[in-house]
Amino acid sequence: MLKQSRNNKSENIIEVKNARKIYRMGKEKIVAVDDVSFNVKRGEFLCLYGASGSGKSTLLNLMAGIEKLTAGQIMIKGHNIQRMSERGLAKFRQNTLGFVFQSYNLLNSMTALENVELPLVFKHMNRKKRRRLARQMLINVGLGDRLKHKPTEMSGGQQQRVGIARAFVSNPEIVFADEPTGNLDSKTSREVMDLIKGMAKANHQTIVMVTHDKDLAMYADRIIHIRDGRIEKIVDQLAGNTAETAETAEAGGPEENTGQTEQGLEALPAHNPG
């Protein structure tokens, strides 16, 4: 349905303009995000890379509308998300956004299947249809035999797969991933990253990921280095050049990968950290 617009490679799906976030701790002001501007293109895999406390997670939360900006504006698909009503934002999340969290954030009282179903429940989808979609999604992430398991009965990797299935089940245009492999060992991390990237590329979805792990950052099309709330540099992996400013030339483009399916995950080009 959105194929046509998604194919428009130069379209900016997210525009961050002079975003600023200041926390007030008593009398002290902490500038978490300091006048940051950049764009995210449709279908792009963007990584916000930085040490802990650099403000990258805050930036992600700001983009997802979970936190409020102090100044500046963030546009997603042409909507100023900071101006949206709570209800509008909820509807927007239902239809456009998916989330993958470091600590999975699954509901422990529910089975894997029910967890994956949850975003569809909020969308008023009927039970039969959402069951089918959720089941298929869990099969896609390789948990076809874990449908009825509770999160507490699963390993971290499996839980994160459920988290990924949940994020992708409603086929969102943008998926936000906050340290998705933070709690996983390196082998599982790679599997999970391949899964996220494969699914996103297969459906031409945009991914914004936050990480402090350089290896993981290499999965991205573009890496924005964040330091002390500011953009330090932007590395365009596909073009191979480094820019000091927010404006980066569009090179290569995500089309290269659009034909890819989950089956081809293992064959993903290994990005060599320079």
Partner: peptide, 14 residues
């Protein structure tokens, strides 16, 4: 936490 997750996943306040 559950409520927070539900909210992030697009559950309306109502």
């Amino acid at each position: 936490k559950e409520i927070g997750i539900m909210k992030v996943l697009g559950c309306v306040v109502k």
